[in-house]
Each structure stands twice: as structure tokens, then as C-alpha cells.
Amino acid sequence: MSAYNFAYLDEQTKRMIRRAILKGLAVPGYQVPFASREMPMPYGWGTGGVQVSAATLTPDDTFKVIDQGADDTTNAVSIRKFFEKTAGVATTEETEMATVIQTRHRIPEAKLREDQILVYQVPIPEPLRFLEPRETETRKMHSLEEYGLMHVKLYEDISQHGAISTAYAYPVKVSGRYVMDPSPIPKFDNPKLEMEAIQLFGAGREQRIYAVPPHTRVVSLDFEDYPFEATKANHPCDLCGAEDSYLDEVIMDDAGNRMFVCSDTDYCRSRRKAGHQGRMATEGAA
């Protein structure tokens, strides 16, 4: 791997990506086209996030990768290894210690700080894509701020299901201007999109980068009489007892018994270390 440049991409490509990132930060929520490169992992497997991380990392950074909130899921492991190999940066599983965190599908439970960067992997950056498949048309809708159709979708949800039936990738309006897809995070995470850290979103296959600067207003779309609700399973974590974290439901046996555990593995671990215990703490920790 020594034949490759620091963090795999050549400097010219990194500069191109950094320009896109800066433009994204200057126009919050706007999807900046960028000439995505073919990466040594498949499109759809985090190539956008990887390119943004590659352009963001410096040798002094400490890098953390999560997928579904966990550090030990296969794709997280694979991406972490990629940067250990190509950038030689320090890696960590502790949210607190990381300066750059690449994520797929979750925002960490712990509050992020001003000196941290959260990089999202994005499969489909266009929140209007499934209402209007044409790129030419959706770009026009964004530029003219024509978002009526987005609310038609939510209206249809309520009229058919009695509630807004979008559970993840729940659309938001950023800084009062652009409607944005927050990537497929559960809507439980949406309120956390207003944070102190820089948030960068990379969609490799679709060639788009967008960003939410620190302390930016991010509003989940809703109706006055059907307000947005951040929901999670109505349980505490069975390992650490947390009441405020997003939970995975794990089927334990053939009888269908279940346990609920934090999807953010670092959050759960640090709580247990501090002495918190859930219903099945002894078994689960084994």
C-alpha cells in the first residue's frame, strides 16, 4: 500500500473534494456535485463517506468508524482498516477520543464537540428522488424552492396511515432554505442534527457532497397538527439501562424472546463501565 498517497486519494483529488466541502458548508443543505472517484470498495458501500474522510483526515487525527452505531460491524471494520493501512492514522472506538467519525445510519448518542467532524455515508442524496426521478427536474425544484410535493407525500402518509410513515431518512429543512436527506438515520436521530460538530455528507455513486455547519437550524418537515416525533423502542437498554438511547432489538431464541440493547456500542460500553446496569446486564456482558 505504500505506493498510494496519504489516505489513498491523490492531493489534486483531495483539493477538489475540499472545495466541494467548503462550498457545501457555505450553502448549508445544498448538494454540491463533485467528480467522485472510483474507490477500491463498491459504490453504495460508503465510497462518498470514504472520499470525504480521505479529504478531511490529517496525520494527527483520530478516526472512528461506525455502521448501525457499532464499531464492530463488518463494513465499519473494513473502512477503519482501509484508513489504518492507507493513512496510518490513529483509530479509536471511543466517540470522545475521535476527531473524525465516519458513520452509516446513526448519529452517536454522546454529544459531539466543536472540534469533531461527523462524516455520513449517503446512498441517495436527493430527498425528492422518489417523488421525481429526474435529476434535471429536482435540481430545478431545489433552486426554485418548490417543495410542495414533499408535503404532498407527508399528506398522503397521514391520509393513508394516520401518521407520517417515514421512519428513517426523514427529510429536513436546513437553515430555512434547502430540503435535505439526512441519510438513512432513524428519525430518532433527527433532533441531534443541530449540533456543535461539523457534519459532512458524501454520496459517491451519486457524486454529491453536502454539509451542515455547526449550530445550524435543522427542522424535520411536518404538519402543525401532526408534529414530528422522534421515536424509539419503548424500553430501557437491557445491558446498560439507558432510557435515552436508540435500541436494537435482538431475537434471542426460537421462542422469539427479545432483548433491547443500545445500537451505539461505545455509549453502552461507557455507561456499563460507569456502573450502570440493565435488566440482563450480567448475561449480556458475558
Binding site: 410542495g148 399528506y155 404538519f223 402543525e224 397538527d225
Partner: peptide, 16 residues
């Protein structure tokens, strides 16, 4: 209902 409501929502109506 969605067809009729679209123009209302396009000009900012937000009460279902």
C-alpha cells in the same frame, strides 16, 4: 385530497 392540497401546501399551508 393530496391533489387538491398540493397548491395549498406549495404556498405554505402546514395544517393537515
Amino acid at each position: 385530497g393530496g391533489n387538491i392540497g398540493e397548491r395549498l401546501m406549495a404556498v405554505g399551508d402546514r395544517h393537515y
